[in-house]
């Protein structure tokens, strides 16, 4: 209940902030009026305010909530299945793989497409397919790297570098127009989000979050180790692969619209575990709530600092997440594991 209230307040605050300042309570008035079907003559101040709220800021904040939740849950699952407190889609290279898939679709025009109506789905499928590559590398290498969580993350970082380099090679060969679009993806930004961006991303991430919640008890079993899991009747390898594929899908859905959003999964899951412990029955939904609000807050900061949208949310998250990431590497706190 408190999470819902907090979300309600954050959404109002988010929408009130921007190049056009809208009073906090006025936001809710306009939202209610719009839902009730109130319309305004085109060109009037009320029309413009309603338009900015409903067509510009509302889809963006909803995307941040759902996308942030999805990335946070992805991070929580990944940390659980990899038994690594530093794992998240960004640090393991999955986001970079997905971004490369987007670049292939955008620059080379090669994508899995079922027709003009499913162009977005094609780009997302591209992102998913290429996100699987770092995922498979991580799955293959993880059993061989038990010495230190940081080692696996270094491997993930190396994979991320490879895909970032491949993306850069593609970017070097394209025209300035496509280059600017792909660069935006590499940085991570919510500035281009519209209502059209939501359906596919929301569907994939919400299904993924629900699935994660349904699998929470099995994730708890997996956290005990492969041998314990086997003795309790759980096929750890299959479970790991299923979870990572679900994460790859969720990440791909976010990346293909907003680009690489870093550190959400890492920070959210960690903070939640610090407070609630490591029972996934609570960690998964709490990470979802925290991650959504965290991304909303980060984008709010970005928009507050630059009303012209010159600072992408990915930059703000890197400024916040990188020091946290470093602190976690140094401490390698495994108390919650």
């Amino acid at each position: 209940m408190s999470c819902l209230l907090l979300t309600f307040l954050f959404v109002g605050l988010y929408i009130s902030v921007g190049a056009t300042k809208i009073p906090f309570l006025t936001v809710y008035g306009f939202l209610v009026d719009h839902i009730l079907g109130v319309t305004y003559p085109i060109g009037t101040d009320e029309f413009l305010t309603d338009f900015v709220i409903w067509e510009v800021r509302l889809p963006r904040v909803i995307f941040a909530l759902i996308g942030g939740a999805g990335l946070a849950v992805g991070g929580a699952i990944m940390q659980n299945v990899m038994n690594n407190p530093l794992a998240d889609p960004y640090s393991t290279g999955i986001s970079s793989g997905a971004c490369f898939g987007v670049a292939v679709a955008m620059i080379l025009g090669i994508s899995v497409s079922l027709g003009s109506q499913t162009e977005n789905l094609g780009v997302m499928l591209n992102a998913f397919i290429f996100a699987l590559i770092p995922m498979m590398i991580i799955v293959t290498m993880a059993p061989k790297m038990n010495s230190s969580p940081a080692t696996l993350i270094l491997a993930g970082t190396a994979v991320a570098y490879i895909f970032n380099a491949l993306t850069t090679v593609l970017m070097m060969s394209t025209d300035a127009e496509t280059l600017a679009v792909v660069y935006q993806w590499q940085v991570g930004s919510l500035s281009e989000i519209t209502w059209q961006s939501l359906p596919l991303m929301a569907a994939v991430n919400m299904v993924g979050i629900v699935l994660a919640m349904l699998l929470s008890s099995r994730l708890n079993v997996l956290a005990l180790g492969d041998d314990s899991a086997k003795s309790l009747g759980l096929n750890a390898s299959n479970m790991r692969i299923v979870c990572l594929m679900v994460i790859s899908f969720m990440v791909a859905a976010v990346v293909c619209y907003a680009g690489i959003i870093s550190f959400i999964g890492l920070i959210s899951a960690h903070i939640v575990r610090t407070i609630l412990g490591s029972d996934n029955k609570f960690v998964i939904p709490a990470s979802a709530a925290f991650g959504g609000l965290f991304l909303v807050l980060a984008d709010l900061i970005a928009r507050y600092l630059s009303p012209q949208d010159a600072i992408p949310v990915g930059v703000v998250l890197s400024f916040i997440g990188a020091p946290v990431f470093l602190a976690l590497i140094v401490r390698e706190k495994r108390g919650v594991w």
């Binding site: 190049a19 056009t20 101040d45 338009f51 900015v52 800021r57 949208d309």
Partner: peptide, 20 residues
């Protein structure tokens, strides 16, 4: 002053004040 962050962007909410 610039409305957007580059010569290729024209953010809608930044333009509303000019419209008004």
């Amino acid at each position: 002053p610039s409305i957007g962050s580059s010569s290729t962007k024209m953010p809608i909410e930044n333009t509303t004040s000019y419209i008004k």
